Simulated assay, not measured.
Amino acid sequence: IDGVTFEFIDAAGTEAPAEFMFYLPDFNALCTAEVATATFHNALTLRGAKVRDLLEWSRVIDYVLTEYGERSDVVFASHHWPTFGQENVETFLRGQRDIYRYTHDQTVRRANRGETQFEIAEDLAEPTVQSEHFDTRGYYGTLNHNAKAVYQGYFGWWDGVPATFNAHPLEAKASRFIKAVGGEDAALAIGQEAFDEGDYRWAAEVLNYAVFANPENQAARDWLAASYEQMGFQAESGAWRDFYLTGAQELRNGLADAGAVRTRSREFVEGGPTIELFNALAVRYAPEKLSRDPFELNFRFTDTDEDFVIDVGNATAFPRPGVQSEGAVATLTLSRDAFNDLILQTRSFREIAAAGEAKVEGDPTALLAWFTALETPDFWFNVVEP
């Protein structure tokens, strides 16, 4: 590339579904992208995602260790500092490989002997590769939540205890807990006692019940916020610290009132295949908002030469590519570019039609019924209270 020789290394299925590293032979330099950085990464991002495969992750790092370790004078990544010196490069890669493999293997070993994800996360010992090397420590991902992620990846969310299989949701559980301990004042006293003893985890759990049972209990909110702050101050992981301190901030000040947040870029929408755009709309479909009997809609995109049917029913709005329905109540013909404008709400359908860029055959109220049933969720929502 522009006179520089690259050797690309497939790392798919590790930190991301599609990922690669590369080696620069002219410079004896290895780039490990997001796969090996100067910290322990997340097997499951706390913001929410699919579980990553730590077994494959360790295999990919072992591959670059054996293939490029002896040939690399420096290893650098997309984040954090580089590592210089061939011996240091190998030590770095071996440590990165081992922390991912250790977490995977020891979680599965313990699960196979009947331990739950919570027992494993609580008791999994820190290996020497973490205690002796800063670049494998849990500044981001942690042994605790990564072990739970490995467990979840193999066994799912349930810990096998029948009582937890169909437990009450938190708000319903909270009111029952408060009643069981003798009321809000009693729960608050338990939480304060735990706080004074430095048992902030138990204080947070008890006080969280109090807040979910009665979000207007200011004393419970303040003590829970204080517990979160203490847990945040003690967290090694920046992610854990941020979640705790954000929780405390919301308890003290309420949700951020930043208005609407734009999360959709035109480039992102344009880059997505049309079927995936319809799939994205399908997960916004609120069937209870459908104002008429089920029907089918045809879509024809003039610039991409694509046909679609949307089967709008009482439960789903199912997109079917490559076909048109003879029984469709309406057919919308327009360009994909104009449809992007509709999705991004940069132009209304009326404006697009007035510009001669869209044509409706059949019943236009059916299109309106489908659009009306598409939900746009609020960006901000409660987390630390009901």
Rank of each mutant, 00 (worst) to 15 (best):
Asp2Ala: 14
Val4Leu: 10
Ala11Phe: 07
Met21Arg: 09
Asp26Ile: 02
Ala29Met: 12
Cys31Asp: 10
His41Ile: 03
Ala49Asn: 12
Val51Asp: 02
Arg52Thr: 03
Ser58Val: 01
Arg59Trp: 07
Arg59Lys: 11
Val64Asn: 06
Thr66Glu: 15
Phe76Ile: 02
Pro82Cys: 00
Gly85Tyr: 00
Glu87Phe: 10
Glu87Tyr: 11
Phe92Asn: 05
Ile99Tyr: 08
Tyr100Cys: 12
Asp105Pro: 04
Arg113Gly: 03
Glu115Tyr: 12
Ala121Phe: 01
Ala121Thr: 00
Asp123Ile: 05
Thr128Arg: 14
Glu132Asp: 10
His133Val: 09
Phe134Trp: 12
Asn144Asp: 08
His145Lys: 08
Asn146Asp: 01
Trp157Ile: 13
Asp185Glu: 14
Ala186Lys: 03
Glu197Pro: 04
Phe212Pro: 06
Ser227Asn: 05
Gly232Tyr: 03
Trp240Val: 10
Ala248Pro: 04
Arg252Ser: 03
Asn253Ser: 10
Gly254Ala: 05
Ala256Val: 09
Val261Leu: 06
Arg266Ala: 09
Glu270Trp: 08
Leu277Asn: 09
Ala280Cys: 08
Val283Trp: 13
Tyr285Phe: 11
Tyr285Cys: 05
Ala286Met: 13
Glu288Ala: 13
Lys289Glu: 15
Phe301Val: 01
Ile310Arg: 12
Ala338Ile: 10
Ile343Met: 14
Leu344Ile: 07
Glu351Gly: 14
Glu351Ala: 15
Gly356Gln: 09
Gly362His: 04
Trp370Arg: 07
Thr372Arg: 15
Thr372Met: 15
Ala373Trp: 08
Thr376Pro: 14
Asn382Phe: 09
